[in-house]
């Protein structure tokens, strides 16, 4: 085994360990966090970064063109589908009342239109009464 292959194997091992640790952290987060949006936040980490790390590790181990293409396909599908799934889950959670309104900075989903900043009418200058003589 040449030195280059050893370096590639070490890099692959580091990527695999980091990806597995992200999956573990997602398990901890989805169990420990308190409400729906916080759990969704925890789920996102292995779905994108963890999967990319794991696929990089596999690609560094396999070192063949078609395998790398299939792994890139996995990552591409995940990057396409996970935002859509997260949007659907978040919207369903909003509509079934699992999102506290005070947590939101911007509310694009409720039916109430955003209140426009009402321009204050210029107050007419109050005429000062003449001082009594």
């Amino acid at each position: 085994m040449s030195a280059g292959e050893i370096v590639l194997d070490v890099l692959a091992g580091i990527c695999l360990l980091l990806g597995a640790f992200l999956a573990f952290s997602a398990g901890v987060g989805v169990l420990r966090f308190g409400h729906l949006l916080a759990r969704m936040h925890a789920v996102t980490k292995p779905q994108v970064l963890g999967l990319i790390l794991l696929m990089t590790g596999v690609a560094l181990r396999l070192r063949s063109g078609p395998a790398v293409a299939v792994l890139a396909l996995v990552v591409a599908f995940q990057l396409l589908t996970s935002p859509v799934a997260a949007h659907m889950v978040g919207r369903a959670g909003f509509r079934t009342g699992k999102v506290r309104p005070e947590d939101l900075d911007v509310d694009d989903l409720s039916d109430a239109p955003p209140t426009p900043p009402t321009p204050q009418p210029p107050t007419p200058p109050t005429p000062t009464p003449p001082p009594p003589r």
């Binding site: 360990l17 597995a20 640790f21 999956a23 573990f24 997602a26 398990g27 989805v30 169990l31 292995p46």
Partner: peptide
Amino acid sequence: VLLLAGAALA
């Protein structure tokens, strides 16, 4: 082991 622990917590 890390993956198994994450799956069990899930």
